[in-house]
Design a protein around this nucleic acid. Sequence first.
DNA 1: ATTGATGGTGTAATATATACACTAATACTT
DNA 2: AAGTATTAGTGTATATATTACACCATCAAT
Lengths: 222, 222
Amino acid sequence: MAKKTQQVLVAVDNCIFTVAEGRLDVLLIQMKQDPFHGVWALPGGLIDDGERLDGAASRILEEQTGLSDVYLEQLYSFDDESRDPSGRVVSIAYFSLVQRDSLELRTTDKYQQVRFWGVEGLPGKLAYDHETILDYARARLTAKVQYTNVMWSLLPEKFTLSELQAAYETVLSRRLDKRNFRKKVSSLGIVQASGERATGGRHRPAMLYRFTSREAEIVEVF
Amino acid sequence: MAKKTQQVLVAVDNCIFTVAEGRLDVLLIQMKQDPFHGVWALPGGLIDDGERLDGAASRILEEQTGLSDVYLEQLYSFDDESRDPSGRVVSIAYFSLVQRDSLELRTTDKYQQVRFWGVEGLPGKLAYDHETILDYARARLTAKVQYTNVMWSLLPEKFTLSELQAAYETVLSRRLDKRNFRKKVSSLGIVQASGERATGGRHRPAMLYRFTSREAEIVEVF
DNA sequence: ATTGATGGTGTAATATATACACTAATACTT
DNA sequence: AAGTATTAGTGTATATATTACACCATCAAT
């Protein structure tokens, strides 16, 4: 491809999901600078020269939210002409699932705040075309949990089967049958008992499980 | 996102598949200009200012191969630093399935030739990172025919069930049972008998079917 | 009339998915 | 110590989906 210049910039945006209290949450930052003063947005920004797309996604996520070591998966490219009022920007979106505990969020003085918001209770319209990106990411997430074991990235190392089931129910927005759920995960072999039990509940203690593999795999879950 | 300039260009590349004689073929052009003189490549190029990504993909496909009105689906973005020797180029790849008959291929004087090649018999190493893109597209294609009705874009309006089965077998690289195949497609309701029969074979004439819908749909085929 | 080639059909066995209800073990309360 | 509230944990019967498998039908060509 020939040498040339273009009036187009390349950016990345990150859709980071987590599950908390039966809610699917997405990580947003609140903008400070016009034209989006006070508006919430997905963490994102322009790539640097010489920087790979996924490297840029990780760097920008860390800068804007404090999250590091997140496995980001490329989602889709968005290039609506009007998606960025400052000019033509093509954005390559990334998405990820993280476990909410063990996160310390912090942002820089370029942004007002960073926090998770329930996807059904967003703080108003998002900046840019970020609602389009979020919808696309949610659809991908719903599809993805059904044929891969990505759910591991949402859960701590050890978890109960009820917690795993609740995570699936939240992402899929539907209830699952407890016995059938357990039959399925055990026949798929994606989890194994750790021997330990969850302590402290006002009820029978639950066995703690762990994932047999924390690699990305295709498993046809639900 | 702030005003800024970047040392990165945006391109699109197209992976156009078809099936012929039991082979999965991909459309390639033969380059004329160095550093890829004589080397085959996927049709692709830089986007124009003000042009949408999918518009650029269609335009470039038409310019370089003569194909128009092809439904292109965005595949993935590739940004290996060394993918283009002339500098940093991010390429958004598109892919499609087309029916081979009724195609008139032509290219411009910027390229030597355009033609389909069997994916298992490529004419040497491809230009850029186009083998990576092709591998990715093949994986997507294999996955996609199994849970959508995209196969329609590979077939003419009317076709026999044997032709449909052969197309699936080629894309999936495995044989399917004739009776089970027919049971499945009829229970899915994705095809309907046209009433007409295929003529001219030295054998019993086959019923011609057509797809009930030529819209993209999720159907869980195989 | 025969031959060669592809079209077209059904059933039984197995595997998978679904619906459904009770007992077990703990913490807390009285 | 007994009772209560709460979540953990388990099995079976039914329905649905998948798989394996073999023969006759219909045409063109000879």
